[in-house]
Design a protein around this nucleic acid. Structure first.
Lengths: 356, 356
DNA sequence: ATAGGGCTCCAAAACGTTTCTGACTACGTA
DNA sequence: TACGTAGTCAGAAACGTTTTGGAGCCCTAT
């Protein structure tokens, strides 16, 4: 059993040339190759000062030769930061949420942070908190809530990291929970004003779901536009973003209605379908405005007047708010330009038909 | 102010109750509270054997009381694994890519892995390799390429982790790069067969971009359906997924065409618009089939016959392929059920008009 | 001439886990 | 009685970074 010479010695001597278990190279390896201390490699990699140009280049050459990549786990371990933000998003390919997700990823990566998503399946009240917990378990420095729904307001306050919601105010539990409020209502007013300016007496509304703040905000903007002119808005038609609900709203639309503001473009598509089946023409009999400006909007029959969103602007704003809450706050001080939505007028809106 | 003792001393004595720098509790803290060794806490947390029930409960209680969350960075550092996969996705809110992304996130989280996206902006050939590098720098155990485009084939082979592409075969560089091939072509054949069975002599094709494998595969399926019947397919109409390109294709559509298979639903919408402007009715004069089954498809005028995709199935398949390549392969052995697309027949397809 | 202070670099100590090694019981079997 | 084995636990050694605490060196101002 026990040989006089330890059998381990030989293999230990050649350990660096190990066979199967090839660990990726670390700073130590780079340092050895470059003939400097490991700390110096760290300085070069992190672009710190006090490294001579000659050494810096030598280190970089060694790092490149070895294919060195800094180990984020080790860095995160010592710094306590992950350089990563999590996003809780409604798991949906709907144009709005999907666009926002893309915009958030872009903004995040541009800020040098990595990006982790947790989708919430629809219809599960506890799903948001679950997704937050999941992100926290994975390790994130902050969280952006990109949920157009309300359930986010029932959050436990002990997250330990700042949370920013893209949503409406509401009683968010903690001072660490900030808010990047959208400006949906204003652009809805603009859309409805466009219809009223065309001469329509009142504008109907095929609403979004009212347990989504996004749906409520669009409804409020619509109602405000009426009240600003002393007009009582007609009762809203319930909906849930789907073309199906728009179709139902179209069936329920009273004969005297001459203009409809739809909560989103899909709703408008469904509503247009119902009108078409009822023999009511757009825009001659009924004017239609959507919201989102989906790519197909310009090619519907007729092309749809709609509101274009500024996802990139909203995303950048939310990220700025979050970054400012982070401990190592690299927060870009300049306030991001206020997101600008705009009404795209196409052929689905026209003056109301002349009453006889 | 009020304390006679040196203020520095007091704070030092109470260091564990530190003010600003509150490190989150670690296994050591849990161990101290539970009166066990740190190693035992590790065993409990990881559900290892050889821990008595009494101790396990005591540890769990202590962990809950402290709000302990295992530090993934420390774990990743020692194990060399991140329990995380990266996805390179086309940064786009297009229905297809967005749906695939959601499906991939679901599948990944269901497998207990965390999920990191890197979007590639369109039109940058080197963007995919950049995104891969970004993911590798962040630390991932494997990568799924959810790019419907081809540039993925110019990848450097030294990733160090397995890469799975959802795309077409092609000369992927490395044996570590596997492939989760889609079955687009087959369902395209089905769609075209549907039109041919209705009596159309030939079916035109408003194609997707041919530098996307997804576009080529749809075109090939369309062509195959013709050749299987000994028919020469008409020349395809170029396109790029957008309604605009569908509109252009509609303008270019020859008068004798009675049926068109569109590369996606948006293309079909644009094409329908062009037909409508030209006074050609759908489906009486021209039958139309799309691809994707976007939510609005059922509510267009007329409702669009289209091909429904199986994103969840494709995502699960790709993830399975990847998991099998991972070192700690927890690969579910049972092959995932082959993804099933299906043709949804609606009102946009009908027999061809009778020739006089 | 010499103290100070930038610049350049190094060695060792964390960070919170997993892995490795081993010690101590209890129990059944030779 | 002695021994092997499975169960239960603890201590120490990694893992690859950042942080901390210097140590030389050269230049300048006194």
């Amino acid at each position: 059993m026990s040989s006089p010479a330890a059998p381990g010695d030989a293999s230990k001597g050649e350990a660096s040339h190990g066979d199967a278990r090839r660990r990726p190279p670390g700073m130590t390896d780079v340092a050895r190759l470059a003939g400097v201390s490991q700390k110096t490699v760290s300085r070069v990699v992190n672009n710190e000062r006090y490294v001579s140009e000659a050494l810096r280049e030598k280190v970089l050459r060694a790092a490149a030769e070895l294919g060195f990549r800094p180990n984020t786990a080790a860095r995160a371990l010592i710094t306590g930061r992950f350089q990563r933000i999590g996003v809780v998003s409604l798991g949906s390919a709907l144009f709005g949420p999907a666009s926002m997700l893309v915009a958030l990823e872009r903004a995040t990566r541009a800020a040098g942070l990595s990006f982790m998503v947790a989708n919430t399946p629809e219809g599960q009240p506890e799903a948001i908190q679950e997704s937050i917990d999941w992100l926290l378990a994975q390790g994130v420095d902050g969280i952006i809530l990109s949920e157009p729904k309300d359930e986010g307001q029932r959050l436990r306050p002990d997250a330990g990291v700042p949370i920013v919601s893209l949503g409406q105010a509401g009683d968010l539990p903690d001072e660490r929970v900030a808010l990047a409020r959208g400006r949906t209502a204003a652009s809805c007013r603009e859309a409805v004003d466009h219809l009223l300016d065309l001469g329509h007496e009142r504008v109907w509304h095929a609403a979004g779901p009212q347990d989504w703040w996004e749906g409520r905000e669009r409804l409020e903007g619509w109602a405000e536009a009426h009240r600003a002119r002393g007009i009582e808005p007609p009762p809203p038609l319930a909906g849930d973003w789907t073309p199906a609900s728009g179709y139902a709203a179209g069936l329920a639309l009273p004969p005297e209605a001459t203009a409809v503001f739809c909560a989103n473009d899909d709703t408008a598509i469904g509503l247009a379908r119902a009108l078409s089946e009822a023999g009511r023409r757009v825009p001659e009999d009924v004017s239609l405005v959507g919201f989102d400006d989906i790519p197909a909007a310009a090619y519907l029959s007729p092309p749809l007047t709609t509101v274009q969103q500024d996802f990139a602007g909203d995303a950048a704003h939310a990220l700025n708010v979050l970054l400012r809450l982070l401990p190592g706050a690299e927060a870009p001080e300049q306030e991001a330009a206020p997101p600008r939505r705009r009404l795209v007028v196409r052929a689905s809106t026209a003056p109301p038909p002349i009453r006889q």
